[in-house]
Nucleic acid binder design. Sequence first.
DNA 1: TCGTATGATTGTGG
DNA 2: CCACAATCATACGA
Length: 407
Amino acid sequence: MEDGQRMYSQQGGLTNMSGNVLPQYNMGQDEPSDQRKQEIGDILQQIMTITDQSLDEAQARCRKHTLNCHRMKPALFSVLCEIKEKTVLSIRNSQEEEPPDPQLMRLDNMLIAEGVAGPEKGGGSSAAANATAAASGGQPDSAIEHSDYRAKLAQIRQIYHTELEKYEQACNEFTTHVVNLLREQSRTRPIAPKEIERMVTIIRKKFAAIEMQLKQSTCEAVMILRSRFLDARRKRRNFSKQATELLNEYFYSHLSNPYPSEEAKEELARKCGITVSQVSNWFGNKRIRYKKNITKAQEEANVYAAKSAAAHEGQGAAGYNVGGGQAGMYMNLNGGDNYQSSDNSVGDNVQNQITPHPRSQNGSPHDQKPDDSTDSWCAGAFMQGLDGEGDNYDGSSDEPGLKRPKI
DNA sequence: TCGTATGATTGTGG
DNA sequence: CCACAATCATACGA
């Protein structure tokens, strides 16, 4: 109470100061300034002391009413609002304008890209499907995983949207509540509409932070889902038999140069229902494993050669008769006794014999004759005859005999 | 359950 | 960026 009084006495100066301000608000124009000061002083005193008084409800209502009805009230209200704005609110004001959070943008982008936060429910769903398809390269093999993935993603999306809605609703409810409260209080406290607005933005910001957390955890969930379902390494699927067949056919029919061109890869990918990079992987693996175990591969080569021959019956299969003399040929290539025929132990010997494939491949394999150069990828000479132009396995190649590989 | 096959990834070199 | 080599992680058959 004493404090209040002291402050009040200090505010005498303020009153004077306000006296300078008040005319701006067009108040009390027709009254002598002394009287005005007196009245303002009264009101201020009431304000300063009102909180220290214990009032029963009736009393409080009565006082409130008196205050509210006072003709000086609106003007004082404005002044106090202004002072408040200049002191407290301006600090907040300075922090208000901030650039869009890059983190939030990242999260938003990801959620949209993953089809979680799509434009609409339907759109989101198709976006999710697209994302899935893009990630898989449209591989029909893993359709089950994809539907599973999509279901899980839809679940995440559902939770996300539900939560978002909840937050939004809560935010709106809370905002309304606060606004109402402030409006109510603005009858007795100097609360300008601007301040209410500001409070609303503060609330929205708080809820935006919560929303961001939701987005973050949603992103995490999607990432986990992705890694679980779309990490092909973890979910390795063998290609279909047919696909493997096609790839093997190509490989063995281009054995002297098993480097399909981009177009050939695309074609193979299309035929096999796999991606181009899978085709590349396949050929990469095939080449390396072929080299590592040539004898076995040879047998396989013969199988495919025989198949091709059968497929092209009547065209003469002489060119595929790589079986009989093959081992001998290879022995030749490897200097005979050096070669160890036991499984998986050919490693070093073979590795030393083969001619690494040079980087430069001029054109598609279809453009290359089996023996048009000596830089075969893998001692390819003994394969000659297997290699044809495309599927033209007519065996009519009258190329000269075997070439000795570079050793 | 174990060994092998196989598709994918990683690291390296050109 | 591509090919290769090594390696990983899973699929699959015995």
